[in-house]
Design a protein around this nucleic acid. Structure first.
Lengths: 332, 332
DNA sequence: TTGTACGCGTTATCAA
DNA sequence: TTGATAACGCGTACAA
């Protein structure tokens, strides 16, 4: 049936404990013994039982990703990056989607921690700023890493990009093209990144000596539908913007759709820009100019902090990139 | 620290075994005993350890999704559907992405089965047709459900849509609009669905008394880039098609991009259609007419077969839907 | 450097 | 209808 550590021990003519030592790369194993055991392990195709390990030891070799994001691409990239890092350590990832409005959220996370003995959690927005969740984990002594946190930034390890600087860079790009009336679609207020990006937009305007026109700032939901609706609203203004900067690529795609519906010539009559962590930016027409946030890299770094990091509250900043595509051109 | 079954037993003044019985809904438990135990479980917020359960029992309350698909949306929908079904049974899902070309594929799956004691696997294309993987699982007596299998369809439980009929329906839609030169972009040959869809396209043409022009059939890769390249190739023909039907929405979006680049008026000068299991269809411009495959429903059904199904080789067919959007109109 | 004895938290077996 | 006890496969603590 199942190959156990016992079988390996018998076959290699050592004790169970010695096999265990080899598996866990412990010291104090004779070089020749180590080799012999490793050979048998490979030959029998032995895989230690995760269940037995987590029951007996301090580690479970499993981490969990707590993720609720409207964008499948984001989720996918997060999972991929985490798995890439986990593979090196023979750790498995449990993907735990959740509903951010669910009253059972706390309960589900507690249940996950209790049931699976995970070695740690990676929290994405907006849960990375969920006070009660953080408290729960702290109380139970479970390690976690926060992705893009907004407040209490030194409370635990985290990874992030400089959203404010990124939004400012994009705004400057649009200003440099000659646009002076730049519409801005902010993201959902429950995400800390929403405020950070709006801040960067405002800062770049100030820097250029322009006043922020409140009529040009609207709030969406990070998804396509809200981008289309808010884009429509901006375009319907008496004095509409010549450029629109949305806080996500889904919303920017929505703006493109709204512009198409109005029969605008793109990008001739309207420049559109966004943030993106997806391939969507290249799928829509014209291809979107975006701030590319390397979600996969952030995920990798988060897993790295969880698995390797000893620093209790290390913060790791990931670089962003301004990718200019066909959707932005000079102002009329 | 951790609340164990022992604590519950002491608190409810019964034996450990009785608590276990209640947890697993076994028979032969007094009604009043059951209630008392359930109360204590709820009060102490007790969660049985997955590790201990899988070690001691026959079940691990975990299933795995073996998934390699170029489309994040597909992966997301699969995961969501499976989780929806799992929740009802208190089962967890382990997401195991893989590289379909990796020589380690077999090894990784064996490793997963050995290490995690999963109760079953859900296989998506193209692994759902991977002979060696199927043999391995059969040999080890591990249950599995195949999604969209192409061959040996009665070997194990599976879920699917009628791809041939669906492709035929879309082709008929285009024919009804007056198109007679319809380009077709097939999917990657390693997917069984690719051949099925091509078959449906051909059948509908025959039905209409039209010959299949080999010059109008090209092969892509299910992704955006190949759709753009093959779309470009079709449009560059001396006598280009007036409609293009791509086997996925990513490829169809690529066709739209190619058409835009050539300055074609859409959908006036070219109708574009595809298959989709994503929101992408609504993001591009004009919104794509597609066969909507309910990936989430398929996933739910697959999990249902795995968790509930007793029928050894039950096949479950899921319905598709022809969604007409602005990308297809009458031929010139 | 290696081995022995024990326990992790649950289910299975069998007896009461 | 309930309970006692032995596994399950591994890591930990300690001894050799």
């Amino acid at each position: 049936m199942r190959v156990t550590i016992k079988d390996v021990a018998r076959e290699a003519d050592v004790s169970i404990k010695t096999v265990s030592r080899v598996l866990n790369n412990e010291r104090y194993v004779g070089e020749e013994t180590r080799r012999r055991v490793a050979d048998v392990v490979a030959r029998l195709n032995f895989r230690p039982s995760v269940a037995a390990r987590s029951l007996a030891g301090r580690r479970s070799f499993q981490i969990a990703l707590i993720c609720d994001n409207p964008s499948p691409y984001y989720v996918y990239e997060m999972q991929s990056g985490i798995r890439d890092r986990c593979e090196a350590d023979g750790v498995r990832m449990i993907a735990q989607p959740y509903d951010r409005d669910s009253p059972k959220l706390l309960d589900e996370i507690e249940s996950l921690v209790e049931a699976t003995h995970v070695d740690g959690l990676i929290l994405t927005p907006p849960v990375s700023d969920h006070r009660q969740v953080l408290d729960l984990l702290q109380r139970r002594g479970v390690r976690y890493v926060r992705v893009s946190p907004g407040s209490d930034v030194d409370a635990a390890p985290s990874v992030f990009i400089d959203n404010e600087a990124a939004a400012a860079a994009m705004t400057r790009h649009l200003l440099a093209l000659g646009h002076t009336r730049i519409g801005f679609i902010a993201g959902h207020p429950s995400y800390a990144t929403s405020a950070q990006r709006l801040e960067g937009y405002g800062a770049a305007l100030r820097e250029a000596g322009l006043a922020l026109d409140p009529a040009l700032v609207v709030t969406g939901n990070y998804d396509f539908a809200s981008g289309a609706a808010q884009g429509e609203a901006l375009l319907a203004l008496p004095d509409p913007p010549t450029a629109i900067f949305a806080s996500s690529d889904d919303m920017a795609a929505g703006v493109l759709a709204a512009a198409h519906r109005r029969g605008l010539d793109l990008p001739g009559e309207l420049s559109v820009a966004g943030f993106d962590d997806t391939a969507l930016a290249g799928y829509v027409w014209p291809p979107l100019t975006t701030i590319r946030q390397p979600t996969r890299d952030m995920a990798f770094a988060a897993a790295d902090l969880l698995l390797g990091g000893e620093g209790e509250t290390e913060r790791r900043e990931i670089g962003y990139e301004l990718v200019v595509r066909a959707s932005t051109t000079g102002a009329r």
